[in-house]
Nucleic acid binder design. Structure first.
Lengths: 200, 200
DNA sequence: AAGCTAACAGACAGGTCTGTCTACCAGCAA
DNA sequence: TTGCTGGTAGACAGACCTGTCTGTTAGCTT
């Protein structure tokens, strides 16, 4: 009857179980749509334990956003890396991360945008969202610079607009038209902004 | 002390007052972030009156979305019309509606995306959002066809992606970089997709 | 064996939410 | 006068929310 061995062996630490559960529930219903009690019940944790690791619900929400940041930014970099060595291909290749995200069961759009939508503009959530988007855009800008874009910051802005638009549109229809067209548009914009130097 | 003449003359009908208040509050905080009691207090209406016109809160939310649809779609068409007679200019000109929306005090992103984010995928809100986006995209597709685009549906998809991306990004930074760059990207995509026939 | 840490279990307070209900009132038409 | 329509005012039920608190237990270290 030992609780820590109930599932047969070493269980995940309580903090990880809380965060994993919050990640799943918050993404599906929005942080405001999930009560702390539900997180507690589904993660099999005591209330005091949750409030020990995350004194306010907002702390849990921020930790959730950090987890999302790692996952999404990681997926973007992986997709770019898989596209080859040419930075121009990488700029287009990162849209593969968008396509596979939209395909995923239970896809519900950009967690940052969704969470920021239910928060005021001076909240910590809003600030964290701005920061996330800036980090991603800075990375894309660097890629655009290495791709030889005339105005790397402008190209990066355009591509991240397409990315955000694709994240939003991916919720609304099941057909993969949006991500595919986002990638096509990115190809056109990259081609127009980056003079081809290596191949004709 | 006559209540109907308290503001000095004929007051707006109760239904309009409710809807106007809901529009303002729902957009600012999200429907889930605004209680029915707040709408009642701020619109100066009795609870029974609100529930007479909108039996469920969800009915009020849908009416709110319809109001948003009229406003936003109307602004898009007006911006396109103001851009001149050439459909290619109109495709780019509609991005002026995005820019002025983002500039507006209290801008908080796309009401449809924000509301859908806090609703489940089988909700009426979700369906209404899909419908709205489809109507707008159909209109853009028609514009693209008249602009002589090789693939009007593809161009329309790309442009609406930029539009949605711009709506999302406009919440996050105050500087007008996003809408301006969305317009610039639209120009490039339109130019690439529509062969110039009238001018050289 | 003793003590510490981390977790479990769950009651509780105080507030907010939606939606229903009773009771009253003003204006208008028959 | 009578009755209808549309509105006001606000109590109420029942559920749910966050956050606090008391008490217990398992495992590790010394």
């Amino acid at each position: 009857m030992a609780t820590t061995a109930a599932t047969g062996g070493t269980r995940q630490p309580a903090r990880d179980r809380i965060l994993d559960t919050a990640f799943r529930l918050f993404y599906a219903h929005g942080p405001r749509g999930v009560g702390v009690d539900t997180v507690i019940a589904e993660s099999g944790v005591a209330k005091a334990t949750l409030y020990k690791h995350f004194p306010r619900k907002d702390d849990l929400v921020l930790a959730y956003l950090d987890k999302v940041d790692q996952a999404w930014f990681g997926a973007l970099r992986a997709a770019a890396r898989d596209a080859g060595d040419d930075p121009r291909d990488q700029l287009v290749g990162m849209f593969d991360a968008l396509a596979s995200a939209c395909r995923r069961e239970g896809y519900h759009g950009c967690a940052f945008i969704n969470t920021a939508a239910e928060s005021s503009s001076d909240s910590a959530v809003h600030a964290r969202t701005v920061e996330h988007k800036n980090v991603v855009r800075a990375w894309v800008t660097d890629l655009a610079r290495r791709a030889g874009a005339a105005h790397p910051d402008r190209l990066a802005r355009q591509l991240t607009l397409l990315l955000d638009g694709g994240l939003a549109a991916g919720v609304l229809d099941a057909d993969p038209g949006a991500p595919a067209e986002a990638r096509a548009a990115a190809e056109a914009l990259v081609a127009a902004a980056c003079p081809a130097t290596t191949t004709g």
